[in-house]
Write a protein that binds this DNA or RNA. Structure first.
Length: 476
RNA sequence: GCUCCUAUCGUCUAGAGGCCUAGGACGGAGCCCUCUCAAGGCUUAAACCCGGGUUCGAAUCCCGGUAGGAGCGCCA
């Protein structure tokens, strides 16, 4: 039997981190077993579903490279099918009409809560042999309810949590079609999973309580229930639930923060899943090694520090052709023109060891692509002194005469210059850094100057000298 | 309130009864290296929620507490 999994978000917001991990697990499991991974948009709630959210989900999935094996399915396009199944169930007696008003149900619920009972439908319209049903009220459009088995148990074979057992007595008859005839979530899911031939339902563990109902409907339909894997949620750093106002970010936010998609995937796969002591996995390794035996049943916190570390590992080792486009994206996003400076490949090579994110890399590389807008105050105060100005001026003329503007030549020139003055390299390199980069942090000074080019370097050295002189004039 | 789920360093986790003096990773501390920032190398602190069983032996199995979480909609 081919494995078929699905990711079924409802388009009411962006693709968040928990959803992304669930999608990843579904994707990996399908790929691991040579099966198919499907995407289904659960948009039956037309009030809250938006096209923007659908687009945001597609965008996030595309960025992460989690591709559906078929065209995405929309629940709103399947209403005829749902109606058909409801009619069948009505005819078969596995579903029935209920004429309770919303007010009636609310009163029922309030009374039960007051009695400290679990609120549930009392089955007043449920047909039973020999039972007399209430008279059908005038002008009330009925809902359709599923006739849940009254006794016995439902056993969920959960791949992550083990067997979970529910008593049918705990379950009431849920509404599968509203008064206006539209189907409800738990029912649509069942029909869709059945029609799509889903073999493994992988979803958040907030759905555990829905599962016994869904299994009962499946059985009433004569279908074989799929396997289930309920993935625990991802918590914020403080151990509380992520929410809009509390750190829940869409995956595209992580792009903006400078994450590489593969790094994101790697961090996410290790959140709740493990393969011995291994921390880093290529996509191929994830596919080969992923299994539910090693997925944790308990919730995990999102640890930004570790995510940064993983990202850094990728930044340092990823092939340049995957880093270049993302770096390009960040530079443009900052308003920089990548053509107005050194080749991106060379800058990445020089920077990637010292940057945990692409955003950081872009910020630290700003000076390669645009004029300096000023100096970091503390760095300038420390390194752009009168002594330094004299050094920079002398050095500028040395560099101006350099036959070849290469890292090797610059290395020899700068080192030779420091030596000739009887100074440590730091005494010379730091003022140069501040002069050309505007701050005291940059790649090794020879590389930095090589990347920056002769014209810009000399212009900035001169500007720094003038800056120092200007300041001393102002002070006197 | 009821039902269901969960519980190993600060965090992610390894651990399928003896291999555990509880391992790895992030983060922390210290040292080395060093033109800055990093990277790298070495060292180090840090955990089995509590209580009962079962067993020759329990982080691992069972029961009970406790603590967190989820669900209980004509939402998904």
């Amino acid at each position: 039997m081919t494995v078929v999994t699905r990711f079924a978000p409802s388009p009411t917001g962006f693709l968040h981190i928990g959803g992304a991990r669930t999608a990843l697990f579904s994707y990996l499991y399908a790929k691991r077993h040579g099966g198919r991974f499907l995407l289904r948009i659960e948009d039956t709630d037309r009030e809250r579903s938006t096209q923007e959210a659908v687009d945001a989900i597609f965008e996030g999935m595309a960025w992460l490279g989690l591709k559906s094996d078929v065209e995405p399915i929309y629940q709103t396009q399947r209403f005829d099918r749902y109606r058909e199944v409801i009619a069948q169930m009505l005819a078969a007696g596995t579903a029935y009409r209920c004429y309770c008003s919303k007010e009636e149900l609310e009163q029922m619920r309030n009374e039960q809560i007051a009695r400290k009972e679990k609120p549930r439908y009392d089955g007043r319209w449920r047909p039973e042999p020999g039972k007399r049903l209430p008279p059908v009220p005038e002008g009330v459009q009925p809902v359709v309810r599923f006739r849940n088995p009254a006794d016995g148990q439902v056993v969920i074979p959960d791949l992550i949590k083990g067997e979970i057992v529910f008593d049918n007595a705990e379950l009431d008859d849920l509404i599968i079609a509203r008064a206006d005839g539209t189907p409800t979530y738990n029912f649509c899911v069942v029909v869709d999973d059945w029609d799509m031939g889903i073999t493994h339902v992988i979803r958040g563990d907030d759905h555990v309580n829905n599962t016994p109902r869904q299994i009962n409907i499946l059985k009433a339909l004569g279908a074989t229930p799929p396997q289930y894997a309920h993935v625990s949620m991802i918590l914020g750093a403080d151990g509380t639930k992520l929410s809009k106002r509390h750190g829940a970010l869409g995956v595209m936010e992580y792009r903006a923060m400078g994450f590489l998609p593969e790094a994101m995937l790697n961090y996410l796969v290790r959140l709740g899943w493990s393969h011995g002591d291994q921390e880093l996995f290529t996509r191929q390794e994830m596919i080969e090694k992923f299994d539910f035996d090693h997925v944790s049943a308990s919730p995990a916190r999102f640890d930004m520090e570790k995510a940064y570390w993983v990202n850094h590992q990728y930044l340092k080792t990823a092939p340049l052709d995957v880093v270049v486009p993302e770096f390009d994206w960040h530079l443009r996003r900052m308003g920089l023109d990548p053509a107005q400076g050194p080749r991106l490949e060379d800058v990445i090579l020089a920077q990637r060891e010292r940057c945990r994110t692409l955003l950081e890399m872009a910020e630290k590389s700003h000076f390669f692509y645009a004029d300096l807008t000023g100096y970091n105050e503390k760095d300038a105060a420390k390194h752009l002194t009168a002594d330094a100005a004299e050094l920079l001026e002398a050095l500028a003329s040395v560099l101006a005469g350099l036959p070849a503007w290469t890292a090797e030549a610059l290395h020899a020139a700068v080192n030779g210059f420091a030596e000739s003055r009887g100074l440590g390299l730091g005494k010379v390199a730091q003022p140069i850094r501040v002069a050309v980069a505007g701050m005291a942090v940059s790649p090794p000074i020879d590389q930095t100057l090589a990347l920056l080019g002769r014209t810009r370097t000399l212009a900035r050295l001169t500007a720094a000298v003038e800056h120092v002189h200007g300041k001393s004039r102002a002070n006197s």
